[in-house]
Computed example of a mutant assay.
Amino acid sequence: MKKQLKVVVTGGPGGGKTTALDLFRRELGDKIAVVPEAATVLFSGGIPRSDNEQMVKIIQKTIFQLQKNFEEIHKKQFPDRLLVCDRGSLDGLAYWPGTETDFFKGVNSTFEHEIARYDAVIFFESAAITGHDISSNNPVRNESTDQAAQLDVKLQKIWSRHPHFYFVSSSESFVRKIMFGIMTIENVINMHRRP
């Protein structure tokens, strides 16, 4: 049986990820299944954000597990489609108020195990990096421009360790960004379709 492909679309807040995913869905139709972002589902479901370190750890562990469960559900529901994940299991590491070692101990996994779960990573750099507005229509997102820029740097450090890491710069036009992302996903599909 052919391995099902899984791609992460990630990046700091205000990178255009959500818009890109909506367009991916329209452009690629039934070739892909988009796995929703676990954090957005959790926070929009009534779980409050917290600055308390213990609460943040519990929330991040919940998001980590929920993300993996969402991916598993989509894998079973759409076995013939490429899974495109709105963020991945390693995103929580950027929000974790402790060390990397502590994070993996907390979620009972390893960096190597988590990075190997994905075939490619498409990273949309946040507009905050270049000082642009990052206001969004996502009501559960509350980061300031500075916080978004810091998160972007942390997330890039984590995900750039993937062997198939594709970076989409915020200095490019938004249309180019989206086109590059769609082309990258199509390339990943085509690469793995070859006999």
Rank of each mutant, 00 (worst) to 15 (best):
R49W: 15
T99N: 03
I47L: 15
I59W: 01
F123T: 01
G131L: 06
Y118C: 05
S50V: 14
F64R: 00
F103G: 10
D80C: 02
Q67K: 08
C85M: 01
Q77S: 13
K68Q: 10
R81Y: 00
L93I: 05
A120L: 10
L42P: 00
I73D: 10
R49L: 12
F124E: 08
S109Y: 01
I58S: 11
V121Q: 00
K75P: 02
I58K: 11
N52Y: 13
M55K: 15
Y118W: 03
I115P: 02
C85N: 07
I63N: 01
Y95S: 02
A116C: 05
L83W: 08
Q54P: 06
G131S: 07
S126G: 13
F111V: 00
E114W: 08
G131A: 07
V41D: 14
F70Q: 10
G45W: 03
F104S: 05
V56F: 02
L93W: 11
Y95P: 02
F43N: 03
F103P: 07
T99P: 01
E100I: 08
I63R: 12
Q77A: 12
T110W: 14
A94S: 05
V41C: 07
S50I: 07
Q65V: 04
I115R: 12
F103W: 13
E112T: 10
K75L: 11
G106S: 14
I63W: 03
E53P: 08
N52D: 14
D119L: 02
D119N: 09
D91W: 00
I73G: 09
K105C: 12
F103Q: 08
V56D: 03
